[in-house]
């Protein structure tokens, strides 16, 4: 996604980003990032906490209001309270491959979705 941010910014379209993967995002070096320290899969906020989601998104948008001459990554004020940090971070650091097989046909969330898409 940082490649998209850098490209858009280079062609005149302002961007701001969210991220929960500091090293990956910092390596790709996009212009503006609000960092949410949470397990992957929740970049835009904790589930079913609309106030926290709104705060996080507002904090990402706020970065675009600043006159910056260098890229910035700033932590959000929103915290992940769904699990103790030492627990979820230990799981995230475990040497396990959680990916599922990569199929080259549409992978529907629910069986009915395939029928809805073809009708």
């Amino acid at each position: 996604m940082s490649l998209i941010a850098r490209h858009l910014e280079s062609v005149g379209i302002a961007t701001t980003s969210l991220s929960s993967a500091w090293s990956i995002t910092a390596s790709a070096n996009p212009p503006r990032v609000r960092f949410f320290d949470a397990p992957l899969g929740h970049t835009a906020g904790p589930p079913r906490r609309p106030d926290a989601q709104r705060t996080l998104v507002a904090e990402a948008l706020e970065l675009a209001t600043r006159a910056l001459d260098a890229p910035v990554i700033e932590p959000s004020s929103v915290t992940w309270i769904e699990a103790p940090a030492e627990v979820w971070k230990a799981e995230a650091r475990a040497l396990a491959d959680h990916r599922s097989p990569r199929h080259d046909t549409p992978q529907y969330d629910r069986p009915d979705d395939a029928e809805a898409a073809s009708s």
Binding site: S2, A5, E9, S10, S27, A28, N29, P30, P31, A70
Partner: peptide, 11 residues
């Protein structure tokens, strides 16, 4: 992973 040491354009 993507690695860009050159700074991004900034709008």
């Amino acid at each position: 992973w993507a690695r860009n040491d050159d700074p991004p354009a900034m709008q």
